[in-house]
Design a protein around this nucleic acid. Structure first.
Lengths: 112, 112
DNA sequence: GCGAGTGTTCGTTCCCCGTCAAACAGTTTA
DNA sequence: TAAACTGTTTGACGGGGAACGAACACTCGC
């Protein structure tokens, strides 16, 4: 058999951190990068779990993109969920805004 | 006399930027550094024009400190004024908060 | 099972930023 | 003028992060 009662051989689930435990420095560093701000904005423009990692319009390779997603996760900004071979994304709006009130709003409002 | 009506041979006045023209990226990068956040907090704890550059408690040399002050100026966070051989500092609270509402509050509230 | 598709990890390269020591510039006091 | 003090500028060094290609891991359709 290929799976046990406890779950079998799936791939490692993405590592998440409670946004309440994220440092201000991590949050600022995560949002200081223009590519990551673009990801956050596109994420905010879509509904939860609507976008997979490959559907974002940023001028980097998938390796670099994967790195950026990891940084956003560690900053408490992103939640990811596996769906077959793809990975669905959700912006953690409420949680992040509770930890850093107004910060996300600045990014979403800003054009650059 | 040692000065003319136009100013004579003073040292170059510090360069300032209108906070309204500061990019979000500049602001985030400026505040992402722990030394600069300390400077901002100490500045907020004192009144305007009360502190000279040498009176801040940060573990860097004066050369590095001077650099940090320049970054804070370019981010629209700091205003400087010459007073003899010293340089007085003022946190641009209202102007910066008008450009990036809530951002300064996050830094001042945070302990780390 | 095989191949296509999706995303991560590894190793490398490059560049920017923070840091320092040393030298410089300006101001004040002696 | 000389000496002391404050702050800036320059050049060099080191570390960290962003970027890429290539290889790997996993899932699904044929």
């Amino acid at each position: 058999m290929t799976s046990t009662a406890t779950g079998g051989s799936h791939r490692a689930a993405p590592v998440h951190i409670d946004p309440r435990e994220v440092s201000l420095e991590s949050a600022l560093l995560a949002l200081a990068d223009p590519v990551r701000r673009t990801l956050v904005r596109e994420l905010a423009a879509s509904g939860p779990w609507e976008r997979t990692c490959g559907t974002f319009d940023v001028p980097v390779t998938k390796a670099t993109l994967s790195r950026h997603f990891a940084v956003l996760r560690e900053a408490g900004l992103l939640e990811q969920k596996d769906a077959g071979p793809r990975r669905l994304n959700r912006l953690r709006r409420e949680e992040f805004d509770a930890r850093f009130p107004g910060l996300l709003a600045l990014v979403l409002r800003d054009e650059g």
